[in-house]
Nucleic acid binder design. Structure first.
Lengths: 225, 225
DNA sequence: ACCTGAACACCGTTCAAGT
DNA sequence: ACCTGAACACCGTTCAAGT
């Protein structure tokens, strides 16, 4: 065998296969050997295309983040844009829940995460938010979205109501949550999203007032490169 | 050696040591053999006290969650209580960032998580929120707090500004974020927390109006136990 | 009941060897 | 350049054996 005339592997094919395994069986099911087998290849072959297993997971996370829609940042009603982006980003993460813990690990070196941060920041400063506020809003929206995709609040509750009897006076109905899990998650996300955007709107006027004159919205610069 | 007259291990000692390793060197540094060595014991000994490594991690997560203060739920200004609980919970998680990915994994069977959910739910329904709303608010607050503890938005950005030149028009200052990381995270958390609680306050009146008569706040029941 | 060493079926990664 | 098999230093977990 040795080297084939046409490469058997590519970064894209590896990421495809890795995401499929993670989706189907979870993060812990993904080993380099298993992934290689899935691709009809031997384990060490992967190291011709990625530096490490972590490097592969990084690329998988970036693939998923890249599925979020960013087109709404072209038209700049910032509240509407934030809401539509949040829904799209959450949907992208919720479609691949097992990879979500990896997403917040290192967005600083991942193209899709950077493109997203850039679009959010650009829209907010374009709408008049001072840069420092825009940075914070981008961050807090990501907290909320990632948190909602990661931790289904309701997922953990058991089906057996007896577990909660006595010890937790207010959780007598908690066993019902398992049934409604998705509905609860969806409702909590929408309620929180609306509260967040409404609450930010309340802060808008004072934020703009206290800021240095917002004449200069960031544009491309000409620097050595 | 074999069995000592007084047990060498206890669940508490194991959790202590595991948390110390995770804090100091990260989740991936924690192996059962390493943990056992830290405790002066051989690997399989741990299985006399925990069913699996996951079981140990679960207990570590519960330990950390249990460090959050819940005393504010006694006095029921729900907005004030929510703010103070959120800060306390976030501080508890931020003190042990490496374990945070494990926290949302299965709160349904962990005493500290259950006690927390119970306290939040009880406070909110006591303040007049209908149960369905209280459930959603508890969930969305957890999304936000866990997300903020897990994913430092700023952590990922690199120190080398050259990386961003050209490709991301709005991120020209992003390399500065590495320096201000903690300040950005802190500011984003506080901004989001205030927006969330303010935004929820806006929803309060209609939520109470549309709810079935809120006379019966949940109390302990007498059932077979 | 609680610890041990040996053992099983795995890991991620390196590396010389092949084409 | 890109794949292979062999090898290294690890894993989580089971289990018979000891006291």
């Amino acid at each position: 065998m040795a080297r084939p005339s046409k490469p058997l592997l590519s970064r894209e094919r590896i990421v495809d296969a890795a995401l499929a395994v993670v989706d189907a069986e979870g993060l812990s099911a993904l080993s380099t050997r298993r992934l290689a087998a899935e691709l009809g290849v031997s384990g060490p072959s992967l190291y011709n295309h990625f530096a490490s297993k972590d490097d592969i997971l990084d690329a998988v996370a970036d693939r998923v983040v890249g599925e979020a829609d960013l087109s709404m940042f072209g038209t700049c009603d910032w509240q509407e844009a934030l809401v539509r982006w949040a829904r799209s980003y959450r949907a992208a993460l919720a479609a691949h829940p097992n990879i979500v813990p990896v997403v917040p690990r290192g967005p600083g070196r991942r193209p899709a995460s950077l493109a997203m941060a850039d679009a959010v920041f650009g829209c907010l400063t374009g709408a008049g938010w001072p840069p420092a506020h825009a940075t914070r809003i981008g961050a807090l929206m990501r907290y909320f979205i990632a948190g909602s995709a990661l931790g289904s609040f309701a997922r953990g509750f058991l089906d057996d109501p007896g577990v909660y009897e006595g010890s937790y006076p207010h959780l007598g109905q908690a066993h019902l949550l398992a049934d409604h899990r998705e509905r609860v998650d969806e409702g909590a996300f929408e309620t929180g999203l609306r509260a967040l955007v409404d609450g930010l709107a309340l802060q808008y006027d004072t934020a703009v007032d206290t800021a240095p004159p917002a004449t200069a919205r960031p544009l491309t610069r000409d620097l050595p490169g």
